[in-house]
Design a protein around this nucleic acid. Structure first.
Lengths: 129, 129
DNA sequence: GTGTATGCAAAGCTTTTGCATAGGT
DNA sequence: ACCTATGCAAAAGCTTTGCATACAC
């Protein structure tokens, strides 16, 4: 059932944007950066490609509580997200400090989880000090 | 700087919807249930009141990764959310199994966090078995 | 050559806003 | 009476979709 994907300049550009910026990105960022590589790049094409890449398992969509819909590369192992309230960016945080067995009362079957941390990132924390 | 709030039938209805349903609700649910109490209730009024209630600290907005924007009562203590993939509802899970000190590498200042659990809720789990 | 992907524009949603009026105080 | 809150409708995001054309294979 694998769908044939044609290797278009647009998708190559979109993939490159993700591999270059190693953090979750919004549609607007993907579009803006992608246009530097393929200047005809259209918003609808970005949306369509993001969906294809999700279907292919290359990207993952996430709903950030304050940045809205973001997309990030898959295959990076279990990790979570940190949102800096100063610079307003999302960071990936490796590892997981959640005790999944204790996370919900008996009866709930936990299959998966997402954690969003909020605060100040290292570079903003330096500036503040 | 406290803004004077008038006690309108619409807001009373919206508050009642939240106190009766003890779980996070979406705008559509608030509108539908609210109309049973005040049938002239308008969508714009719901949005405006949700915002007021958030400003007053009575409600909290949350971005659920798969249910979209939800609103819930504040003042219930620290808790997180469970999304049932069977019945597609959000539940509040009391307590917290996150070790906040180990949640991010050094340098990150964690002020706050949100956890979303995904799986099957107790009542759906029973049916499945 | 065949059929998928693109660009453009229009349409769907969700959420916000302008404005005249209703209604709380 | 004053002035906030409401209802209605229009507008402003964000995302999807239809259609003719471009282009990957």
């Amino acid at each position: 059932m694998r769908i044939l994907r044609r290797k278009t300049a647009q998708r190559v550009a979109i993939e490159k944007v993700f591999t270059e910026h190693d953090r979750p990105l919004g549609v607007d960022e993907v579009l803006a950066c992608g246009r530097k590589l393929v200047d005809s790049l259209n918003q609808a094409t970005v949306y369509r490609n993001l969906k294809m890449l999700i279907d292919d398992g290359w990207l993952k969509r996430l709903s950030h509580p304050s940045l809205g819909t973001l997309y990030e590369r898959t295959g990076k192992g279990h990790h979570h997200h940190f949102h800096c309230r100063k610079c307003n960016r999302a960071f990936e945080i490796p590892g997981c400090a959640l005790n999944e067995e204790e996370a919900a009362p008996k009866g709930y079957v936990i299959e998966d989880h997402e954690i969003y941390l909020f605060g100040i990132c290292p570079s903003c924390a330096k500036v503040t000090k």
